[in-house]
Amino acid sequence: MSALLEVRDLVKEYPVRRGLLRREIGSVKAVNGVSLTLERGRTLGLVGETGCGKSTVGRCLVRLVEPTSGAVYLDGENLTEMSGRDLRAARRRIQLVFQDPYASLDPRQSVGAIIAEPLHLHHLERGNEQARIANLLDLVGLSQSVRDQYPHELSGGQRQRVGIARALALEPEVIVLDEPVSALDVSIQAGVLNLLEELQQRLDLAYLFISHDLSVVRHVSHEVAVMYLGRIVERVDADRLYSSPKHPYTKAMLSAVPVPDPRIERSRQRIVLEGDLPSPLDLPGGCAFRSRCWKQTDRCAIGPSLIDEQGHAVACHHPELE
């Protein structure tokens, strides 16, 4: 119970309705029993392809999405059972930075108003609101002159910094970063990533870093969890994941990352996955990856669970050897 954030068996199902009467004909399990822990001052990367449920996990943590079952503990308190005043108070401690920094800023508010809003909502002005805004702009590396500007007048990187400043205004302990740089130009990404690292060290923040970009995740994460169709298939510290992946899916994913050196790039062995993602409406029993896996056997029809061996957790009957 020592972890700052602990997620236990998180499940989110979406009902699927068809026909004139909108009868429920089944459900999609966007998140299917995810468990995570996160310590203060650490970064957990959550990677997976589009639609694997990684963003849904992030949204469940801040209660933008109500989980179907499972629990989220922040310092031992169950967030999923909170409502009203308690939830508002807990929201101060866990914040979210959105993927699209333009869509997530109200076009009618100036930067100053955007950053001040969380202070107003939680009555934290304490009479020196202007100083606090100045301080936050400074913290995220924006000049004071942007305060009176509107989101459409800013560059992508500046907008994302505004989004980060808004999240920081409440002095949270955990920040869920939902693909925080994937909407930005590559040249801008590094600046924002460095800022995030700097803020983590200065403020002892814990990050859940959600991304589909393996190289970005490697750069920022202490530990990485790989998701496939709503489940975590592998979880280990970042270095070991990249040097010796155990799950075939992780291995295939890593083999697809291009290498900047053309000579190595040419000789690189790529694993090309056959077939498509199975329909999430009709998931195969057992290992969800087996329909595309080159190692699959009859055993795979019975679900492998995530087994932790010396800090390297993998859900596979035929893991790669180290």
């Binding site: 929201r91 101060r92 914040q95 869509a103």
Partner: peptide, 11 residues
């Protein structure tokens, strides 16, 4: 999304 963002900061 900015409506979601407002909920996250507690509106």
């Amino acid at each position: 999304e900015f409506i979601d963002a407002a909920r996250v900061i507690g509106a």
